[in-house]
């Protein structure tokens, strides 16, 4: 039996330990926000966070996450603890990033991981972080803008927090 944290809750899996995390999340745990796109870590639609870093769940045997903390798009946005996640989602809606939408969970997961590590990314930082996430609708221009916008709101709220503290 493999035990791990999923979206902040302890959970377990009793099946084949080589089962990719993607199918455990989707088939067993019924969290379908994480998508299948290629099965070989080429497209990023299956991106989740493992202990806060991006992970392609389609090539991750469930045995690899034993005792670790997995966060999916559902957990990322329901936790409300992630200012980055909230900022990214708001920016995505404000400039209407998605088209078909199928890749967007993965895009959001990568964007949030980037912003957690780098609160003011350049275009190049964004291209580096998002290079593994394919969008066949090619919403890339708005993804880039969305990340900049999210970074802007994070910076603004951070500076207002600082002011609040000093006041």
């Amino acid at each position: 039996m493999i035990k791990f944290q999923l979206n902040g809750k302890q959970t377990e899996f009793n099946g084949d330990p080589s089962t990719p995390l993607l199918w455990v999340i989707r088939d067993e745990k019924k969290l379908t926000g994480t998508k299948y796109g290629c099965g070989i870590a080429q497209c990023g639609a299956c991106t989740v966070h493992l202990n806060g870093s991006t992970l392609r769940s389609c090539v991750t045997p469930i045995s690899e996450v034993s005792g670790k903390e997995v966060t999916t798009i559902e957990g990322l946005l329901s936790s409300k603890v992630s200012a980055e996640a909230t900022a990214v989602q708001r920016a995505w809606v404000a400039i209407d990033v998605p088209q078909c939408g199928y890749c967007q969970s993965g895009q959001v997961m990568s964007a949030v991981a980037l912003l957690k590590a780098n609160s003011n990314p350049t275009d190049q930082d964004i291209d580096n972080a998002m290079a593994g996430n394919i969008c066949r609708c090619a919403t890339y221009q708005r993804i880039r803008q969305g990340i900049h916008d999210a970074a802007g709101t994070l910076t603004a709220s951070a500076s207002s927090n600082v002011k609040g503290e000093t006041a």
Binding site: S53, T60, E64, A129, A131, G132
Partner: peptide, 28 residues
């Protein structure tokens, strides 16, 4: 996919080696 070496050769935030490469070879 394209990946940059980043600090320590472990990739860049959001796109690290460990985003795809785990502790051992994984059969597809």
């Amino acid at each position: 996919p394209p990946v940059m070496r980043g600090p320590g050769g472990t990739g860049m935030p959001g796109m690290q080696c460990k985003t795809c490469h785990l502790s051992e070879n994984v059969d597809v």
